[in-house]
Write a protein that binds this DNA or RNA. Structure first.
Lengths: 109, 109
DNA sequence: TAAACGCGAAACCAAATGGTTATATATTTT
DNA sequence: AAAATATATAACCATTTGGTTTCGCGTTTA
């Protein structure tokens, strides 16, 4: 079953600095929306929209807990970016990249 | 002298699939604009705009040669993405990532 | 039970994005 | 010199993006 035409791909998701900061925050801890919002100078509604985009890219997920919605990180989709990048690494590679590429052959599946 | 607030960062530059395809094309060969355009179903003007965004991110550069403008790839700025990604790799890492991270310690500078 | 909290959803807005067509200019080519 | 080629630039357009404010609703807490 191939990917069903994802609405927001991971490349677009990480293109925004606010969203990258959200990812960093969630890499430390899972957090409710209000807590995430407190780290930015924008409204909770705006932050929620960023969270939705990240969730559509499956980089985060949220669970409802009481009146809070707690989001956590799922970094796996970043692997697509990593794979894409690996193609270009050979172009600016230093001497170690041959070994690194060999190591990465294992990667997925 | 720090980076002078780049107008288009590399994350935004690679967010668009057309621009990623341009990078792939230029990874094979340097090419004039018309040649690049022939690979897409959009106007030369539209392609030129993508080229400008990639050039602002310093991922490509163009030189004028006769009446043609020939673009070539400069993949080095992708290193910023790689660095960013490396922080998250530890979260989904398989057993090999420890070795890989050690290897990459050398990386830049 | 009333007030405060956390969130969702809708309506709205300005600016950026990704595209178009038209026109002009410099360089070959015939 | 005239025609064709390759590009640049400007004006325009629709949609997306990133933000806002407002209102309503379930969940705690006083």
């Amino acid at each position: 079953m191939a990917a069903p035409a994802e609405k927001h791909d991971v490349f677009k998701a990480i293109a925004d600095p606010t969203r990258r900061e959200v990812l960093r925050l969630l890499s430390e801890n899972e957090r409710p929306i209000s807590e995430i919002t407190s780290h930015f100078s924008m409204s909770r509604t705006a932050v929620t929209k960023h969270l939705q985009i990240l969730a559509e890219a499956e980089l985060i997920s949220g669970r409802k807990e009481g009146r809070e919605k707690i989001y956590q990180l799922h970094p796996e989709p970043l692997n697509e970016v990593k794979q894409w990048l690996s193609y270009y690494e050979k172009f600016w590679s230093n001497k170690l990249s041959i070994l690194k590429n060999l190591v990465e052959e294992d990667g997925d599946s």
